[in-house]
């Protein structure tokens, strides 16, 4: 479904990505791991067309490199930013509304689905999103992107700084997303979650992919964990 080949990206003069390659299959959950600053966020931003890059990003066989972010979104790629990037002055319901790409088409998700998964959001549907708690904002960014009905969703650090109970809820949402036939490319720092839910893993270091394999391969490979993941 998603095929990334030889992806290079620069911020000004510094070379951030050095020929990154990865792939995500239909309905697959794939994690991209690595320490802070190794280029994981830049990788998914490049795929999304938010960072200038060279190389090849094929989504459903179509080249995405060179397209503007809004066009990439219309092709069916979804992006959930880190830092709970909600629109603070709009209500929860308005945030969800802006997740939709058009008012005519309805996708596989409705406001009600989100409210069922996260009853807290329903209670606060008409509240300004800026006053929600960190966990609630995180749920909202996820739900907002899903409202646009992506076929593959890229999620940047969804569990960072969340209470364990909310992390569980978020993991529950991933299951629901997968059930509806959507692929996930997850950027994570917590190895435990990634091992738990992914089918395949990639590890990044210095702007390159340094390991790829199944959660089982990773469990057995202490050297990779020590060199590239553990602090």
């Amino acid at each position: 479904m998603l095929e990334v080949r030889d992806l290079n990206a620069y911020y000004g003069k510094s070379h951030i990505l050095h020929g990154v390659h990865l792939s995500v299959g239909d309905g697959e959950i794939v994690s991209l791991l690595g320490r802070n600053g190794v280029g994981r966020s830049t990788t998914i931003k490049s795929i999304m067309g938010m960072v200038e890059c060279s190389g090849s990003v094929k989504f459903k066989g179509e080249e995405m490199v060179g397209l503007k972010a809004y066009r990439v979104a219309h092709k069916g790629l979804g992006y959930v930013p880190e830092n709970r990037d909600i629109f603070p002055t709009l209500t929860v319901r308005q945030n969800l509304l802006l997740g939709r790409k058009s008012t005519r088409k309805t996708g596989r998700w409705k406001d009600e689905d989100m409210f069922e998964l996260f009853p807290r959001l329903k209670e606060r549907a008409d509240t300004q999103a800026g006053v929600l708690s960190g966990g609630e904002q995180q749920m909202l960014t996820l739900c907002r992107t899903l409202m646009g009905d992506p076929e593959l969703v890229m999620i940047d650090e969804p569990t960072e700084g969340l209470a364990p109970k909310i992390v569980e809820q978020v993991a529950g949402l991933f299951e629901e997303i997968k059930k509806r036939g959507i692929s996930i490319l997850l950027v994570e720092q917590k190895l435990a979650i990634a091992l738990d839910i992914s089918e395949r893993l990639y590890v990044m270091g210095h702007g390159q992919i340094v390991f790829e394999g199944t959660p089982r391969d990773m469990r057995e490979n202490a050297a990779v964990r020590k060199e590239w993941l553990e602090v």
Binding site: K68, Y70, A73, T89, Q94, L97, L98, K101, T145
Partner: peptide, 25 residues
């Protein structure tokens, strides 16, 4: 209006709005 909400959102988060599929330019 929807375009009004897009404008309000783009005031603070133009990149995020564009990644959601809105033609910010």
């Amino acid at each position: 209006t929807r375009i009004g909400l897009v404008i309000q959102a783009a005031l603070t988060h133009p990149q995020t709005v564009e990644a959601l599929g809105h033609n910010v330019p």
